[in-house]
Design a protein around this nucleic acid. Structure first.
Length: 280
DNA sequence: CTAGGATCCTGTCAGC
DNA sequence: TGCTGACAGGATCCTA
């Protein structure tokens, strides 16, 4: 679930708590969730490549973390910092049955929770991070991509524009939410063939992708502070910026038509049938 | 090379 | 209440 904005939010938030602190002990509760041998070392830096997080250690090793659908990182020290897939775990007693890995640091504890076990942490030599297959194949992020380059890339793909922008080797960072949001903003139907987009549409889409993700990063993605409202009830951070995602039957904020949920590229897809007309 | 579908896993929710 | 199937903010592998 966490897409680029959530992972960037975690990178920024977690850095404040664990950079310069030392990992003293690692407890692996689910073997599938941790590949390699745990390291005892200080945290030097946290980097991000697309949706992957890299924790660089001071002994030449790095921890690559991919949260996939349901991963979360929750730091418990003097205060709690939780981000990733929003759930009750943000405020729950930890560890619990969804906790897969526990890192004990000098000043606190970092929990890696992951309901569906699709996410993982793996130990790499820091010098090898950029050779990791996932990271090596990763395309540029929207901010690094030129309009012309994006348009040229789309010309090579005959599948739906939604499937195309979800492909991290074509453009990095978008997931199901921001793909829907960007397509809505650019007024493009998700089933449109990628190579049928006009140059103007490609430009609008790239611009929209940057806009929706920037806006989400500014609002802090899904973090503890958004999760629990002042009255103690469950928050919904999506309400802050999502125009179509998870808003089936609600009114389109642009034209008032009812938002519809369809299936594209095997994923639930939200559109305004009036703003995003299917052509041909 | 492409594209579509199954798959990894656990949990929740709608419908009967 | 209990069961069943569909679905889930991701990516890879397999097939044709």
């Amino acid at each position: 679930m966490p897409e680029l904005p959530e992972v960037e939010t975690i990178r920024r938030g977690l850095s404040k708590f664990i950079v310069k602190d030392k990992i003293k002990k690692t407890t692996i509760l689910c073997a599938k969730s941790f590949q390699g041998k745990p390291e005892i070392a200080k945290v030097k830096d946290i980097r991000r490549f697309g949706k992957a997080l890299i924790i660089d250690l001071d002994n030449g090793k790095s921890l690559m973390i991919h949260l996939r659908m349901t991963g979360q990182l929750i730091y418990d020290g003097k205060e709690r910092y939780a981000a990733g897939h929003p759930s009750e775990n943000f405020v729950a007693e930890l560890p619990n049955k969804q906790t897969r890995v526990i890192f004990e640091l000098e000043n606190g504890t970092l929990y890696f929770n992951d309901q569906r076990k699709f996410g993982f942490i793996k130990v790499l030599d820091t010098t090898e991070v950029e050779n990791d297959p996932f990271i090596k194949k990763l395309a540029k992020e929207p901010w690094q991509m030129k309009e012309e380059e994006f348009y040229e890339k789309l010309q090579k793909h005959t599948t739906s524009i939604k499937a195309t922008i979800l492909d991290q080797t074509i453009i990095a960072g978008l997931g199901n939410i921001y793909a829907d949001e960007a397509l809505f903003k650019a007024k493009i139907h998700p089933k449109t063939k990628a190579n049928k987009l006009t140059k103007k549409q490609a430009e609008d889409l790239l611009e929209a992708a940057k806009y929706v993700m920037e806006k989400s990063i500014e609002s802090g993605g899904s973090t503890l502070k958004d999760y629990k409202k002042a009255d103690g009830t469950k928050g919904d951070y999506l309400d802050k910026f999502a125009q179509v995602f998870n808003r089936t039957n609600q009114e389109c904020p642009r034209c008032g038509a009812k938002i519809v949920k369809i299936r594209v590229a095997g994923r639930g897809t939200h559109i305004c049938p009036n703003c995003q007309k299917e052509r041909e």
